[in-house]
Design a protein around this nucleic acid. Structure first.
Length: 123
DNA sequence: AGTATGACTCATT
DNA sequence: AAATGAGCCATAC
């Protein structure tokens, strides 16, 4: 648990991050999800931006987070610029079988993974 | 303390 | 249907 120096998330935010990370790590290979879906699954439906922010700083907490599987609600790879190189995100997705065209996930609705599905699968 | 920004999303025009 | 504005939450300056 290393707290970032530049980014200093509050304790509440930090907990939120952990939930986001756990959920993101649960995303099956070859599937993607959206920030809003994650935010909603965590109860903060309007905090989709916070999810994106969590992804932004996720690399400084854990590098095992498949942030490339998280796109916006349109399936656009909006965060590709934050992967160091813009082609990494698309490459990772295509490597998992997710077709990406013009920075957008092809057949997004088909590869979309609903986090609520995992959270409510037992309910 | 107030303004500006952001890996978003929804509502209205 | 596309484009524009506003809402949202937290951080950075």
């Amino acid at each position: 648990m290393v707290q970032g120096q530049s980014k200093t998330p509050s304790s509440s935010t930090l907990i939120f991050f952990e939930q986001v990370y756990e959920l993101v790590k649960l995303i099956p290979r070859g599937r993607v999800t959206s920030y809003g879906a994650i935010a909603r699954a965590l109860g903060s439906a309007q905090s989709s931006r916070m999810v994106g922010w969590a992804m932004n700083v996720c690399h400084q907490y854990e590098t095992n987070i498949p942030a490339h599987r998280v796109v916006n609600r349109c399936g656009l790879l909006t965060g590709q610029h934050h992967f160091g190189t813009p082609n990494v995100m698309q490459a990772l997705l295509e490597n998992e079988g997710v077709r990406v065209k013009n920075n957008k996930v092809v057949d997004f609705k088909s590869v979309f993974w609903n986090p609520m599905q995992e959270l409510t699968k037992d309910l």
